[in-house]
Design a protein around this nucleic acid. Structure first.
Length: 455
RNA sequence: GGAUAGGUGGCAGAGCGGUUAUGCGUGGGACUGCAGAUCCCAUCUAUUAGGGUUCGAAUCCCUACCUAUCCUCCA
């Protein structure tokens, strides 16, 4: 398997160990506001990656943090005049709710920042003791120049960072490029006790404290959106490696690209974002997943109606065929190997190109549709197995609606409809068809017989 | 200005030196009582620009131009 690794800037052989747990960490959100398609993209992508790895037999521990204390949360709380945790809880709940709806369920553990204050303080203590961090009147800072590899991950050199300094420089910072790891509280702000007085953690150290607790000083895969490469991940590397002395933090760095609107990054500040909830008013979660996975992960996507409509059309086509196949009699013999799956898996294993998987699956769907009536039981089994396999990590086959209609009743209705049609009572026949559709049952007249399925 | 990706038909996107992929859209047709689903045909005959290498380039090299992300909080 190959993945593009940000640090080495090359496609690297993804060399994971089947005998050990594969440790994957992906940066979670700051729970300060509603979530948009940008979030959906990142988390859907890594969900599919982890599901694929598991499918392949790896035992993956997928860890994600949740930033539940942060300036933005405090600001929001002040605007609404409520305690900060009213905000963080509200959006944490919304986040979990959306994750569930989008079928993003591969994360083993969500680590909340505020539940790891101890670990954070311990890391800061080590950094201060080793001389990597220093205290000022408003906080504790990490001294960037003490870490020679700073800038390596993002391809920045320290000098150009200095000249580009849009960094707001606090007077007491020894270097404008230094970053906070502990913020001392201002009146009215939430706080935790620490050796440096009351305050709260900086963002970067939150993640290293969490990953160190669950994974130790190094782990296998670190993922997130590309916008976090600098300074966030750069800072994580500096912090953890300064503490551990190890030559690396994560063996692989996988960064997914942005979602754009009118060629611009979807973001809060530009007010050009579309919330996930909004999209789910008109599209199925599976259609959104398809749309987002139908793009190479390192390419930006422009978010347009076309993108979703194409996904809708394709998900519909795959699903319809899938339901029809399910009505047939597949062979139950064990086939040695499914050649289609082998071919499709090559796409996944070359840079997780789910898009190519979809493309080839669609071609197969066309082929199966043409021969639908003449497929052998073996071919039916292969087709179903192939779609199931793709669905096992992409989750694009819409779930059936909960239903209570019995098969016998449906058959009865269809018999009645048949006799109506024979008597040319098409109005009545169409009414039955429409009612069944409303109940999530699709029917299809095929000459003498009528087939149906629940979708 | 620096770092990193890119620039292919109406849109999305393959191709990695030698068949105008493919999907969506659009038009037409088959099937159907009508739908739906599916299929067939067509449409679009595209590769940012200019040089170069080559028998031959979307594909390699150079130059220019353009776009996105990051260099500040951000998935």
């Amino acid at each position: 398997m190959y993945v593009y690794d940000t640090l080495s800037r090359t496609e690297k052989n993804l060399d994971l160990n089947h005998d050990q747990v594969v440790r994957v960490f992906v940066c979670g959100p700051t729970v300060q506001d509603s979530f948009h398609i940008g979030h959906a993209r990142t988390y859907t992508f890594f969900d599919a990656v982890v599901k694929y790895l598991r499918r392949k037999g790896y035992s993956v521990f997928y860890l994600q943090n949740i930033t539940d204390i942060d300036d933005k949360i405090i600001n929001r709380a002040n605007e609404e005049n409520v305690p900060y945790d009213v905000i963080s809880r509200r959006y944490t709940e919304e986040f979990f709710d959306i994750m569930e709806t989008l079928r993003i369920n591969s994360v083993n553990f969500y680590a909340m920042a505020t539940q790891h204050i101890h670990e954070i303080i311990r890391q800061i203590q080590v950094l201060v003791k080793k001389g990597y961090a220093y205290e000022t009147t408003d906080g504790v800072y990490f001294s960037v120049t003490k870490f020679p590899d700073y800038g390596q991950l993002s391809g920045q050199d320290l000098e150009s960072l200095r000249t580009g300094a849009r960094v707001e420089s606090s007077e007491e910072k020894r270097d404008p490029r230094d970053f906070v790891i502990w913020k001392k509280m201002k009146p009215g702000e939430p706080f935790w006790n620490s050796p440096w007085g009351n305050g709260r953690p900086g963002w970067h150290i939150e993640d290293t404290a969490i990953t160190e607790k669950y994974f130790g000083p190094t782990y296998d895969i670190h993922g997130a959106g590309m916008d976090l490469i600098f300074p966030h991940h750069e800072a994580e590397v500096a912090l953890e490696r300064s503490i551990s002395g190890e030559p690396y933090l994560s063996r692989y760095w996988i960064h997914s690209a942005m979602v754009n609107v009118n060629q611009e990054k979807m973001s809060k500040s530009l007010k050009n974002y579309v919330t996930i909830r909004k999209v789910l008013e008109d599209y199925l979660p599976e259609e959104l997943r398809y749309a987002l996975l139908n793009v190479q992960f390192r390419s930006n996507v422009n978010f347009t109606p076309d993108l979703l409509n194409e996904a809708k059309a394709n998900v519909g086509a795959i699903n319809t065929l899938y339901r029809k196949l399910k009505l047939k009699q597949p062979s139950h013999e064990n086939s040695d190997e499914n050649p289609e799956i082998r071919r499709l898996s090559e796409h996944v294993e070359r840079n997780f190109d789910f898009r190519l998987v979809f493309r080839d699956l669609l071609e197969l769907v066309g082929k199966w549709n043409v021969n639908l009536e003449s497929l052998t039981p073996m071919e039916i089994a292969t087709a179903i197995e192939t779609i199931d396999w793709v669905d096992s990590f992409t989750c694009i086959i819409p779930r059936k609606k909960e239903d209570s209609t019995s098969d016998e009743l449906i058959s009865l209705l269809l018999r009645i409809r048949r006799s109506m049609r024979e008597k040319k009572d098409f109005t009545g026949a169409d009414e039955i068809r429409k009612s069944l559709r409303d109940m999530g049952i699709t029917i299809e007249d095929r000459g003498e017989e009528t087939i149906w399925w629940k979708s």
